[in-house]
């Protein structure tokens, strides 16, 4: 098991290096640099600034410098936000994105598993049809449209109630989380419920399900011990890519609901060519995703004994 984790982490590290390198060169391929965006400045001032940020050195040297600093966990200072360390930006705004993403994944997971199970239990009857129609709708409507609709609904609701039931946008309280998280998780929920429905159907037709019933197992015990545990396995494998999608897809929701998460800063940084912030956030996201995928693999092993005991070979 330990060997398995170590192997995964090592390949993760190589991936992060690749992401960092690709980002670095893609970014420097962009015409212009962060300083040209400012107002006209005298060559002397410009030279001074270039020296301060190390932009006067050759690209390869800058790259080496960046890699060295990255290994020490230092991403430097933002170009556009005076004297703000990239690490500070990440540590201040990432938790917000993370809470939002976590809530979205939880909603998607619980909702998807529940909807998929209901659909499988009532196969080809109206609850199944309802779930499948919902799935198709959620897959076909872009997230930003759902976000907009959600805002409209909140406004209509608040108007009808004559008071603020839920805030339309912003951040700060528990009530600010629900709607954006639901919007963010909806597409994933649809995807997961599709998978869950298929795997639950398989379990319901499986011999061991009949065998458990023949033992007299019924109701919640049957569902919890035998059906859910087996049916949820394919959903868990999808969880890694899902979390990746939700965290990087979060910035639209952050934009529309005016949530001060990291995604917004990233978009801003790209527009302003803020080298250090771009590098910092990309590498950070990359590392985060690699970690998540490893964690999901481990949790998969916890549910499925076949993988736990074989050291992760059997996927």
């Amino acid at each position: 098991m330990l060997k398995f984790i170590a192997k995964r982490l090592l390949s993760g590290a190589i991936t992060i290096w690749f992401i960092a390198t690709a980002t670095f060169f893609a970014m420097h391929a962009v015409p212009g640099d962060p300083l040209t965006q400012e107002k006209a400045m005298s060559p002397a001032v410009r030279a001074q600034l270039e020296a301060r940020y190390g932009l006067d050195k050759p690209l390869i040297e800058q790259y080496q410098l960046f890699l060295g600093n990255m290994l020490q966990g230092d991403f430097g200072i933002s170009f556009t936000q005076e004297n703000r360390k990239v690490n500070d930006i990440i540590s201040k705004h990432f938790p917000i994105s993370a809470i939002l993403g976590l809530a979205a994944v939880l909603i998607a997971l619980v909702g998807g598993v529940a909807a998929g199970t209901v659909a499988a239990y009532y196969r080809n009857r109206w609850p199944d049809r309802l779930v499948m129609i919902g799935v198709i709708a959620a897959i076909s409507v872009p997230g930003f449209v759902i976000a907009g609709l959600a805002q409209l609904i909140i406004v209509a609701m608040n108007n009808a109630a004559g008071k603020t039931l839920l805030p339309v946008a912003g951040w700060g309280s528990v009530n600010h989380i629900w709607v954006p998280a639901l919007v963010l998780g909806l597409g994933t929920m649809a995807y997961l419920s599709r998978i869950m429905r298929a795997s639950m159907l398989e379990v319901l037709n499986a011999d061991f399900n009949t065998a458990a019933k023949a033992k007299g197992v019924h109701g919640l015990r049957l569902f919890w011990h035998h059906q859910l545990r087996n049916a949820v396995l394919p959903v868990v494998t999808e969880l890694g890519p899902t979390i990746a999608g939700v965290t990087t897809g979060g910035f639209v929701v952050e934009l529309i609901f005016a949530i001060p998460g990291l995604g917004r800063y990233f978009v801003q940084a790209v527009q302003q060519l803020d080298y250090t912030v771009i590098m910092g956030t990309t590498v950070f996201y990359g590392a985060f995703l690699v970690l998540v995928v490893v964690l999901v693999d481990i949790s998969y092993g916890l549910i499925d004994p076949r993988i736990r005991l074989h050291g992760g070979g059997g996927r």
Binding site: D207, F208, H226, D304, P305
Partner: peptide, 24 residues
């Protein structure tokens, strides 16, 4: 019926590979 299944009448299935729950 639930009191009877597995208690008074029990069943042995054809294929033990698929009739046992792989996660228990």
């Amino acid at each position: 019926w639930r009191r009877i299944r597995g208690n008074e009448i029990a069943m042995i299935f054809q294929n033990p590979m698929t009739a046992l729950d792989p996660t228990q």
